[in-house]
């Protein structure tokens, strides 16, 4: 059920500002791909073009193609809402719905999209929470508000919420940047498990994390401030971290940058 992503010639704008230019890459199903690169080079922007969240920002505009198993997400007649059901997203800051309980948070995607029977719903919620390694911590307080959890728990709640709707692809934008090392490790383990079922793309500023969790790594960079970001290279993670083919990648990874 995981799907392949095939991007070609993708350029994204904020109004008249070109944020990323001419990006092409392929992401294999059931793999983890990490995006690394300096701040402002357009990693988040590119990630958000993969589930048509980019156009939610005012002035957001995209040119180019994103194929999800041969179907162009930006083709005519494609409904962005159904795209987002296929391609889920976890944000940098945990953002559980503050008015909903833990249970309702996980069930939100399903409930807001259609009607389910109560038993069906609680099965899916349990499965998703187990999938996000959160079940044991919250099973006794499913009816308590989700915002009462710790930051790391909230982030795993958001992951549970995202996987509950069974997407084909899971996009994660710096999912661990607000978390402590233990929660980070829990989420990294989780990514390892989730990749059995989903295609995963993760943005991270943490080189070790990219090296630990990903199969492939893409390095983004921008020529100068104000210039659009570009994909410098994408390769197997091992190669990127041992023997990258572009000098800039090596400089960035070894910390000799700028």
């Amino acid at each position: 059920m995981a799907k392949r992503i095939d991007v070609s010639g993708l350029t994204a704008y904020y109004g008249s500002h070109k944020a990323i230019e001419d990006i092409s890459m392929t992401v294999e199903p059931r793999s983890v791909t990490a995006f690394i690169g300096p701040s402002g080079c357009g990693k988040s922007t590119f990630l958000r073009t993969l589930n048509r969240m980019h156009e939610v920002t005012s002035g957001g505009r995209v040119e180019g193609k994103v194929l999800l198993d041969d179907e162009d997400l930006y083709g005519a007649g494609i409904d962005p809402v159904s795209v987002r059901r296929e391609v889920g997203m976890v944000f940098q800051r945990p953002n559980p719905f503050p008015t909903m309980s833990i249970f309702d948070n996980v069930a939100a995607g399903l409930r807001l999209n259609g009607s389910y029977r109560k038993s069906e719903l609680s099965d899916i919620v349990e499965k998703s929470l187990k999938g996000a390694n959160l079940w044991n911590e919250v099973k006794d307080r499913l009816n308590k508000p989700g915002s009462g959890l710790s930051g790391g728990q909230q982030q795993r709640l958001c992951i549970a919420r995202a996987i509950a709707v069974e997407p084909k692809v899971l996009l994660m934008d710096e999912p661990c940047s607000a978390l402590d090392p233990i929660s980070t490790l829990a989420i990294e383990d989780l990514i390892g498990e989730l990749k059995e079922r989903f295609t995963i793309v993760i943005v991270t500023h943490n080189m070790q994390q990219a090296a630990r969790v990903s199969d492939r790594t893409a390095f983004f960079n921008l020529a100068a401030v104000g210039q659009p970001g570009r994909l410098i290279e994408i390769d197997d993670t091992e190669r990127i971290f041992s023997n990258p083919s572009v000098q800039a990648t090596e400089d960035y990874i070894s910390g000799r940058f700028g």
Partner: peptide
């Protein structure tokens, strides 16, 4: 917060 709207939209709502 805009993040809540985006969280919901990203779920395909």
């Amino acid at each position: 917060p805009n993040e809540l709207r985006e969280a919901s939209l990203a779920l395909g709502v």
